[in-house]
Design a binder for these strands. Structure first.
Lengths: 106, 106
DNA sequence: CGATTGTGCAGCCAATCGGTTGCAAATATA
DNA sequence: TATATTTGCAACCGATTGGCTGCACAATCG
């Protein structure tokens, strides 16, 4: 079982669940209402998200509220950092080209 | 075939390939040298990355140089935006708590 | 108490995944 | 021209995936 955050967000239903519970905690039944799938399949997705610590649970009686562990999302952001450096460089290169063109116009 | 960018970065080997060719274009053989797998399997990964437009090819004779389509990576960054808003809010909430504590101390 | 509701888990299944081997085509080299 | 190199693609294979059904268990309701 691989179960890392990148594998977790690979599935479109899981990404939708993440977005759904990002702002407010929800029960599995309430989450499942938003998808054309069974409650059990949503439950399976929640288990996967729990296993890689992307969601947390809070039990209220027989209801379980799931919400996003927002800090964990920063791991993706962290991985993207290496490419942000490149974006920046490319932008500067483009900037240089533009200012060269500007100077030639003068 | 799903073939979106999130499914593409789900595999650790593909993430490593992306990092490898982010700064300089490389041939499939050169890429495969960095992994304990066959050239054909790397070729398969490159095909998947090509299909979701994450890499571009440049042919030089019989050699094909693959490099990262860095702009495409921004799609992940874009998806993360919705969570950045939440990080910001959470930070402000923490900030409020801290300043309340500060006031109480006074 | 019995019935209903909310939930997780096991087992099944078709589809997909990531790897392999074997090949064919194109280019470079002798 | 014959040979070697670089590559992509097809076929196969075991493992994993994501969905389903059926169940068990606990909490709530009548």
């Amino acid at each position: 079982m691989r179960r890392d955050i990148f594998q977790a967000i690979a599935d479109p239903t899981r990404r939708a669940i993440i977005t759904l519970i990002a702002l407010q905690a929800m029960t599995p039944n309430a989450i499942a209402d938003n998808f054309q799938t069974t409650r059990q399949s949503v439950s399976k997705h929640l288990r996967i998200l729990t296993e890689c610590e992307l969601v947390k649970q809070e039990q209220h009686g027989r209801e379980i509220y799931y919400s996003l562990e927002i800090e964990k999302m920063k791991e993706i952001d962290k991985w993207l950092d290496q490419f942000r450096q490149i974006w920046k460089t490319k932008f500067n290169q483009l900037d240089n080209v533009l200012s060269t063109l500007k100077k030639q116009k003068k």
